[in-house]
Each structure stands twice: as C-alpha cells, then as structure tokens.
Design a protein around this nucleic acid. Structure first.
Length: 952
DNA sequence: CCATTAATGTGTC
DNA sequence: CGACACATT
C-alpha cells in the first residue's frame, strides 16, 4: 500500500519529532509530583486496573509496557503511579492530550513546514531555514554549541569520543552541502526542541535526515529527549541490517509478507531485488516504493498541515459489555455524537472549518456464532453530516440501522423493545462503535459564527474557550470603523471577518467553500441547547415520511441530497460547474436518484427549501440549514428556473446593517461585482441571498437608495420597480432595505415575515393577518438562488437572485436586502446609481470606505472609487430623499390601507399607487426604472411585491 | 465469543 | 465514490 513519490529535486532537510511518552508527560505536567516517578497512563481503571496506553521511562525500566493492564504493571513496578485518562460522555476523553499536542505543534510550525502526523508527532521540512542558516551563520562559524546540539547522535560517527566528533562533524566547513544542511537542521531542531521544553515542559526526540522515512526512523533511535541525524553517507550502512519492520509501513502485513514469503528480513535483503521484480511481487506502486526505500529514498513531502483531517470518537464494548439492543447502541451513539459535535464546534470556532461527512462504524458479531465464522464485517455507512448533537446522534442511529440490516438481513426487526435488554430476541452484539466527521472544509471566517455575526450579543452558544482565541483572528478594517460609528456593543464581531472576496473565476474549491458556507452557515455553534427544535431534514427522511425521526423502520434505500444543488442536467450552470457539482454531490450527498425524465414538478423543491429555512427555528442561537436536501429527491426535477446557485457569499457585517450606513457603497458596488460573476465581500452588504422563496425573475424586484431616517443616516434602499427583461444583456439590480422595526419589515417584505408556503405566496394573496404574523426573531439562513436560463450563460451574465436574510439587530431593527442579477438589457435607471457593467473587473469591495458613516447623500461615493470602480460614475443619489419618502409613503399606505398595497412598497412605483399612497410624509416623485411603472394591485401578494412586469 | 483504546491517515477497488 | 483494508501511535 505504500506508494512511491517522486523525489523532490533538491536536497531537503526533514525532521521528525516525537514527544516522549506523551500522555505521561502531559499528566506529569498536570501533576508535578509525579515527575521523576514511575508513571503510566491508563484508561478505565476497573477492569484489571485499566488499559495502559502510555508508560513513562522510569516505569519502562521496570518492564512496564503498553498493552499491559494496570494490575500487571503494579506487579512489575509496585510503586507505579497509574493516572487515568479523563472520562467524558462515558468514554475516554483525549482532549487534554490533543490540546497539549497543539501547543507543541504551534512551536514547531514557527520554523518551516509542519505536518502534524499524529497526536504526538510532527514532521518538519526545515530546508529553507537550513539554507538560510548555512548562508548567514553556518555551523562552522559558530563558536559555541548547546549541549542539546552536542548530544546529537550522528549515524555513522565513531561512538568513542562522541561529543568531540559531533562538534567536529557539525562544523566541518569542507563537508558536502547536504551534510552541512543537515548540520544546520540539527541546530535548528535542537533550538526548537529547547523552545518546546521551555514553553511546554515537554521533552521530545527528533530525527533529522533528508526525507521523512529516514527522519522517522532516526527519531526513534535515541529516546528520550535526544536527536539523531542521518547523513546520506550513513544510509546504506544503516539500512543494510535494519529489520524491515522498523520502516514505516512495513510494520504490518507487508513487512511480514516480505519475510514469510521471500525471506526478506532486513532492508539490505531487499537490495538484490530489481524494481520490476518487486513490482511483480507487490504491485507497481508498492514495488517501486520498496525498491526506493531500500535505497534510502523517499519522496513523501511534508504536508503543511497542523490540523486533523477528520474528527472521530469511538468506544469499544468488549466481551460482556457488548451492546445488544438498539437502545443502548442509541445511547452510546449519542454520547459519541455529543463529543464529536463538541469537537466540531471547537474546530469551527477556532479554525473555521466544518465537516461534510458523517461516518458510523461498528464492530458487531452475531451472538452464538464464532467470530471467525462471521462472513462479512459489519459495514460502515456514511451520510452528509448535519450539525447539532441530536442530529448527529439520530443520523448515526439511522446509519447504524442500515448497517445492521445489511449485516443481518434475516433478523431485521429484532431490535428489542425498550426495556427488554438481552432478551432472546438479541442475535447481534456490538463490541465497538465509532462516529467520525470528515471532509473538512473551510468556511469563510465569520460564516461559522453567524450567530454572533448577526448580532446576538456575546453569546451563549459560544464556548468559553473561544474567547481566548478571538484575538488571534485576523482583524478587519471594518470592525474599527463601523463599530465605532455604530456605537454598538459588539466590538468583537468585526474581527470575525477577514477580508474575503470571491468570484466565479476562482477555483472550484474556493467557490465551493463559499457556497458551502452560504448554504450551510448554520448550526455553526453546533450543540445548541434547543438543538432539536429546528428541523433540519435528515438524510433519512423522505417526503413520504417527513419527520419520522425515531421510527424504527430501516432507513430508506437512497436518501437524496443533491437535486437542488445540481440543477438541471445540461444547464449552463451544471455544465460549467461540473466539478463543483460533482464535488458537492460527492462530498455532501448521496447520489441523486433523479436521473432521466424531467417532469415539471418543482413545487416540492420550493417547499423543501422552505423546510430548510424554518423561520420559527431561527432564533439567535440556531440556524436551520443543512447540506442534506433529502426531500428534494422527491422532486422529479429541479425547479425550472430557480436553483441554488454558485453564488458566493459572505455575511453582512452586522454593523453595516445595524447602523444602516455601512452597506451603502459596497452594496452598490457589489452589484458590479455580480456583473463580473458574482463576488461578495465581507464588507459589503450584499451577501448572499437567502430566500426560501422562489423569486422568479418574471417578477419585478425593486431597488432603492440610501436615505436618512430619524435614526440617523442609514442605508435604505426602498424598493422600486425594476423591469426584468428576459433578453440578453446582463444587468444587475439590487439593493437592501433597512427597516427601523420589525413592523416596517413586515409591511415591506411580507415574504420574509411570513412562513407560509412560498408557492402559496406566489400565487395567493397574502392575508393581512398572516402578513403581519412575523417571525423575525433571528437571522435567516443564507441561501442563494440562481436562475437557469435556457441558453448557457457565462458566469458574468448569469442571472441570479440574491437576497439577504433579514437580521435582528440588538436594537430590534431588522434589515433585509435583495439583490438581483438580471439578464442583459434589463435597463436600469441610472438614477439608481447602478450600471450594468459586466466588463468591469471585480470591484474590490473589501475595504470600508472612510465615508461610509459620514455620507449617505450626494457625496456618498466621494471616497469610494476604489479599485475596479474608478471609471464608474455614481449618479442618482441626489434623489435618495425622494426614494425614501416614496418608500415611507408606500409603507404607510400599506399599513393604513392594507387592502390596496400592503406589503408592497416597491409597488409604489405604480403611478396610481404612488398617488394613492401619497400622504403627508413629504414629497414623492415619480420614480421610474426602465421607464416603466408597476401596476397597482388589490391584494398584497408576493407577486405584488415583485410586481409582474408588463409582458414585452 | 472477542479485554489494545481511541484515535488518525492512505490507498485500493 | 463509498466502503474497506491496512498502517501507525
């Protein structure tokens, strides 16, 4: 299974560093009185004294080893100190060791490429540092070597008069460059190891060589607290008699096969074999690898990765402890899930990563049958992960059931009834369970903490731990500015948002992380107290049985997660973004079943989208969103016009909306970004849209501009009519709304304040009572919708709709933004200050304009001509007052005369309504977009809100 | 029935 | 591409 890698061309300096009996050191640091005493770390005391998993050197000298039980160790070493691994969730909890390892990694990663190879090992590629050192302060120029360095073991050196030899060897100015580089490496590593001792009290052993294999080999040669160097000249001699099992990857089956099948005991024994011979014996890859390793060659590179690629929790239930019914399995899966979720939470907070995949595995046997008789091993199962410990747990149970029914199909229903444990019906016994989360991806900073982002005051769901690390996050330019100006009490928040911009021209994976983040920003802080309340469709649910979480029936054969994401086969988007799609498909979801015939039924999609965005569940702690659109599978076809798009997203900086002013410029600028293919910056208001609604582009949308309100300067973009054109040039329209109160939002944006079926909203008049039934207690999930046009559209002209989730600010005002990318030639009134500018480079909207807070009027953009916008003239802002007045009148009109145009400020664009609605609030002027006026309606409907454009 | 636990990562099919 | 085998600590 090992695979040969091409040897990097230049000489590398690679180190492998290993923490000596790591768990013991950690425990000795916690309990200093144990230092110097024979110590071992055990887990689960009761059974024969617990299993020893680490042994200190004092105890090793007494013959204590791992694999012993605590009792055995006591016999060998009566005064041994047995320290127990902490227990959490009823199982061993290795957190403290993980964290201690992190401390060490932090130090090692200061000096080059650092790969965290396990909880207590790192590989380092310090080639660069070594080269630099050789150039500026070569070993031969040093007048003094630390004892640590002088203690270096150099393979091939005479053992007598060791230290002298070492000093001499290291400082040979005539040595080969590779030796001198290694010497530099030895100096560097000794310094790092010294730093580790100083900062963490942990001792380490290290190997320094030209590749990972040799470094790893060397690090184990002299322990503890020593380092070993392997000059290339020593390699041959070193390997000649080295038992094959000492080499990484040869400690198992392969190594045994070498010996038992071919009599190869040492690496030297491999030398006579030609590469092709070895290939014929073990396959091309392994054969080549063997051939090269036997010659000391190993091209494996040090991956710059200090974070794990996955998180997992497992527990064994040996012998009599085996689990024999679903209840106990469910219990333990919950415990494991809880721990897993905690670790995912932490990863999210500290590293802005989330997992995509949940895997459950169990060790299981049929009772009464010998293990070796067991034909098949218990299968693993996986699904898209839904964050939240309850969800993880319930999905884990579903996966387990699936595996179980596969494992013993004959006895599918024998899950004993509650209470009936170990009854005669039990035929299976689970001796091990594991749940793991993998396929980690980065979420844009801030997405994961959407809760905080949207203004929940320093909260609740954040773990205490995180506070300490907040300061390490990149600081944001906006934080200073807007926080000050806004005078809000969330100074921290800005720091959560490093600069982020993305456009469709970015590599797929980058887009994907944004996309993921925009679709699944939720559950960020994972284990929420009211976890269960928000319904996120489980991968196991179907339309048929929507919420049967706990039903005992086996999981449906094929959960489908991808229909919405994928779009129609052959659509522009699916073609262009095939990679993305398959990536999403694979990483998020089980394969779709929706191949073939495309009927027209798309209503389910809308409903399902809504399901994912249950507003009632959107309190400030919880988000409902899920990577798993399980129910969508029921939709024979994705919606004809709207689908989740590859629009990237970021978050609305809370303050932008909180004080209303921040977003203006960037909001508008973002439109130009959209024209360039959609990009969103962290500073700009435009974030992803997220509407559960099927905003059809056949509807009109509105846009407005900023205004001043009684609350001070605010970004307000009252909705106005926008002509949507179905023709070809692309234009972009967008805007945002800032509503001082929820009530206003209700009036203006019933859609977002109502929970009724979008479908219904689209077709049916919205009852007044319902319109006002707002659920605006929390943020809305972010979603992106995109129109799929008939002809392929390049990204820059892709039609999309973007809306911002409403937000609940600390002061209870709410905001929402809508942003649309219209097909070309949707003329946009220049008075909006928006111009179709598909050719402009993506505007850099990363930085906050200094005048964000000072101006919302005519000079709005005086300082805002940033990169990419230089040539753009901003016009039309002199009319903001009019727009605002218009909006106000419209809202008021709506409020006071509900039957006419309630909830449709944008509809104010109609002349009639404008006039009708006009009341004291000040002057209103005609406002046109594209030279058209919208029509007055009787009832407030979504269609009213987004007035249908006159057919062309 | 099974007492090396609880993780990790990689390559293959 | 999901599941598994294998390897390591």
């Amino acid at each position: 299974m090992p695979v040969a890698r091409p040897e990097p061309p230049d000489t590398r300096v690679i180190a492998h560093v290993d923490l000596d009996c790591f768990y013991v050191q950690v425990e000795q640091r916690r309990h200093p009185e144990l230092k110097g005493k024979p110590t071992a770390v055990v887990q689960y005391k009761p059974f024969r004294g617990g299993a020893i998993i680490a042994v200190g050197y004092e105890a090793r000298h007494a013959g204590v080893t791992r694999i012993m039980r605590g009792d055995d160790a006591r016999k060998l070493c009566p005064d041994i100190n047995l320290v127990q691994v902490p227990v959490a969730h009823g199982k061993a909890d290795l957190t403290i060791y993980r964290d201690a390892g992190t401390e060490v990694v932090e130090i090692f990663s200061r000096m080059g490429i650092c790969e965290r190879a396990s909880i207590d090992e790192v590989y380092l590629d310090i080639t660069e540092a070594a080269v630099v050192r050789l150039m500026h302060s070569p070993p031969y120029a040093a007048d003094h070597y630390s004892a640590e360095v002088l203690g270096t073991h150099i393979i091939g050196l005479d053992k007598d008069s060791h230290s002298n030899n070492v000093k001499e060897w290291l400082s040979r100015s005539f040595a080969s460059r590779s030796d001198q580089l290694l010497a530099c490496g030895a100096l560097i590593i000794s310094e790092l190891r010294t730093a580790v001792v100083k900062e963490t009290q942990f001792t380490t052993s290290a190997g320094i060589a030209h590749n990972k294999m040799l470094a790893k080999l060397a690090s184990g040669m002299h322990k503890p607290a020593q380092q070993t160097l392997v000059p290339s000249s020593a390699v041959q001699g070193l390997l000649a008699t080295l038992p094959t099992r000492k080499i990484k990857y040869l400690g198992g089956k392969l190594g045994r096969s070498l010996e038992s099948d071919h009599g190869i005991k040492t690496m030297g024994d491999l030398l006579p074999y030609t590469e092709s011979k070895l290939q014929s014996m073990y396959g091309v890859n392994t054969g080549t690898w063997l051939w090269r390793v036997a010659r000391g060659m190993n091209g494996e590179e040090v991956e710059g990765r200090t974070l794990p690629k996955s998180h997992g929790c497992s527990k064994t239930f040996p012998g009599p402890e085996s689990l024999k019914n679903l209840d106990t399995v469910g219990h333990w899966l919950s415990e494991l899930s809880a721990e897993l979720q905690e670790r995912l939470d932490e990863d999210l907070q500290l590293h802005h990563r989330k997992a995509r995949l949940l895997v459950v595995h169990a060790a299981c046997h049929i009772v009464g049958r010998a293990s070796n008789t067991n034909s098949k091993p218990f299968p693993s199962k996986s699904c898209a992960i839904r964050y939240g410990k309850e969800r993880v747990a319930s999905d884990a149970v579903q996966l387990f059931k699936r595996s179980l029914s596969e494992f013993c199909p004959d006895v599918p229903k024998l899950s004993p009834v509650k209470g009936e444990s170990g009854g005669s019906s039990c035929v299976w016994a689970v001796t091990g369970l594991s749940v793991s989360a993998s396929n980690m991806y980065e979420v844009p900073a801030g997405m994961g903490t959407i809760t905080r982002f949207f203004g929940s005051p320093a909260t609740s769901s954040s773990k205490e731990k995180a506070t300490g690390t907040t300061s390490t996050l990149p600081s944001s330019p906006v934080s200073d500015v807007s926080d000050q100006a806004a005078g809000t009490r969330h100074e921290r928040v800005g720091a959560e948002f490093p600069e982020e911009v993305i456009s469709l021209n970015e590599p797929d994976d980058k887009i994907l992380s944004f996309l993921d983040a925009s679709m699944f920003p939720c559950n960020s802080l994972g284990s929420l107290e009211n976890d269960e309340e928000a319904h996120v469709p489980s991968p196991f649910e179907t339309d048929a049985e929507p919420k049967s979480h706990n039903n005992e029936s086996e999981a449906p054969a094929s959960p489908n997660a991808y229909a919405v994401l994928s779009g129609r086969e052959g659509s522009a988007w699916t073609q262009e973004r095939e990679v993305s799609r398959s990536h999403l498909q694979s990483s998020l979801c089980p394969p779709s079943t929706h191949a073939g015939s495309h009927s027209r039924s798309c209503k389910p999609v809308k409903r399902n989208l809504m399901d994912h965005i249950d507003p009632s569940a959107c309190n400030d702690k919880d988000w409902v969103c899920t990577p798993t659109f399980g129910e969508v599978s029921k939709c024979a076809q994705p919606p004809p016009t709207i689908e989740l798009s590859d629009i990237s997203s970021d978050c609305y900086p809370k303050d932008a909306l909180a004080d209303g002013s921040t977003g203006t410029n960037s909001a508008l600028e973002a439109k130009s970004d959209l024209a360039d293919g959609i990009s969103v910056s962290r500073n700009n208001v435009q974030v992803i849209l997220c509407s559960p609604l099927d905003f059809r582009l056949q509807e009109n949308l509105s846009v407005g501009s900023d205004v001043e309100t009684e609350r001070g300067p605010q970004l307000n973009l009252p909705m106005t009519d926008i002509q949507q054109s179905s023709s070809s040039t692309s234009n972009i329209v967008g805007g945002s709304l800032h509503m001082p109160s929820t009530e206003d939002l209700k009036l203006v944006h019933p859609v977002l304040t109502d929970q009724v079926e979008p479908t219904e909203l689209l077709s049916e008049p919205v009852e007044e009572s319902r319109t006002c039934q707002a659920t605006l207690e929390g943020p809305w999930p972010l979603f992106a919708l995109k129109q799929n046009s008939e002809q392929p559209l390049p990204p820059r002209s892709a039609s999309s709709i973007v809306t911002l989730p409403h937000q609940t600010n600390p002061d209870h005002s709410t905001s929402s933004a809508v942003q649309i990318v219209l097909p070309d030639q949707a003329n946009l009134s220049p008075t909006l200050g928006l111009e179709a500018n598909a050719n402009s480079p993506a505007a850099n909207v990363n930085s906050v304009s200094p005048n964000f807070h000072s101006s919302n009027r005519g000079e709005l953009h005086s300082g805002a001509n940033r990169q990419g916008l230089g040539s753009r003239r901003r016009t039309g802002f002199s009319r903001v007052d009019e727009l605002w007045e218009k909006w106000k009148v419209a809202s008021q009109s709506s409020a006071t005369t509900p039957e006419t145009e309630a909830g449709c400020p944008s509809v104010g664009g109609t002349r009639e309504q404008n006039e009708t609605g006009q009341r004291g609030e000040g002057m209103r002027r005609d406002f046109q977009v594209d030279g058209r006026r919208s029509r007055k309606r009787k009832k407030s409907t979504i269609s009213d809100f987004f007035v249908k454009s006159p057919s062309k």
